[in-house]
């Protein structure tokens, strides 16, 4: 029998999981990608919360309805000329009595490139199967749960919302462009049509999927040189033991499924 056994049931494991989510904290990433025909640069931050543990012996920890909360800040730029062709007012000449021939200059409208910032925060629920992962590294025992495979992220609703947001943001930016007022609806429609939901989904997928691919939550982390009793004076130094071995399993005991840690120590 192991010298120390610690166990939690599914309710306790759910609490442990929530602690692990807090310890993992907020993850961030940035980069650039294509958004339909346009280029987009993005910054993304993600943190996890919620979820309910379903322990499945012998080695699966299923986390149901895990919230992946994300915030996206991305900017994409496009050339209005991609939507509305540039045009020129031709040179016009007239003969004016007593003055002679008068010509207007050729006037060309070259539509500018505009940059549209979009911020969006939301969460996506997913369910994933995790397996136990035990490592001794850097003098610490770490028992974690690691996601198996890549959970499917349902981001279509978010994509639709972001597309609408892009349209609204584009309208706000385009209002500042001279002469375009009458064409605004046309340009916005052109932009959103060029991006389309598939375009946003294609952007969100590569941004958000890496946060769940290889996702690992630490449920136990202690130094191998474990402090049993803290120091309490010059002649009462800290008392330590060595954690020689740490094992973890999902066990079916009686009527319950439990996450069980077994630890052997030496003085």
């Amino acid at each position: 029998m192991a010298e120390i056994i610690a166990a939690v049931d599914e309710a306790g494991a759910t609490d442990v999981m929530h602690d692990a989510e807090s310890q993992l904290g907020t993850q961030g990433d940035s980069g650039s990608s294509s958004l339909g025909p346009f280029n987009a640069s993005y910054g993304a931050s993600v943190f996890f919360s919620g979820g309910v543990i379903d322990l499945r012996p012998p080695d699966v920890i299923r986390v149901q309805d895990l919230h992946m909360n994300y915030s996206l800040n991305f900017t994409f730029s496009f050339d209005i000329s991609d939507i509305i062709p540039d045009f020129c007012l031709p040179r016009v000449c007239v003969n004016v009595p007593c003055v002679g021939r008068v010509c207007t200059p050729r006037i060309c409208i070259n539509w500018p490139t505009v940059t549209i910032p979009v911020s969006y925060s939301d969460f996506v629920l997913f369910t994933g199967d995790f397996k136990l992962d035990i490592v001794l590294s850097g003098g610490f025992w770490d028992v974690g749960v690691v996601v198996v495979g890549i959970p499917n992220l349902q981001i279509s609703a978010a994509a639709a919302a972001i597309l609408i947001l892009i349209g609204l943001s584009a309208a706000a930016v385009l209002l500042a462009v001279p002469f375009i007022g009458p064409l605004l609806a046309l340009v916005v429609a052109g932009v959103t049509a060029a991006i389309a939901i598939a375009g946003v989904t294609g952007l969100l997928g590569p941004i958000l999927t890496p946060f769940v691919s290889g996702l690992r939550f630490s449920v136990y982390r202690q130094p191998q040189n474990f402090e049993v009793v803290p120091a309490s004076g010059a002649i009462d130094p800290a008392v330590r033991v060595t954690l020689d071995a740490v094992a973890a399993e999902v066990a079916h005991n009686g009527t319950e499924d439990e996450l069980v840690l077994s630890i052997d120590i030496s003085p």
Binding site: I4, A6, V8, G12, D15, V16, D19, V219, Y220, Q222, F226, V228, V229, L243, L261, I263, I265
Partner: peptide
């Protein structure tokens, strides 16, 4: 210490 720091 009785649980070597496991869980709370």
């Amino acid at each position: 210490s009785l649980r070597a720091g496991a869980f709370s």
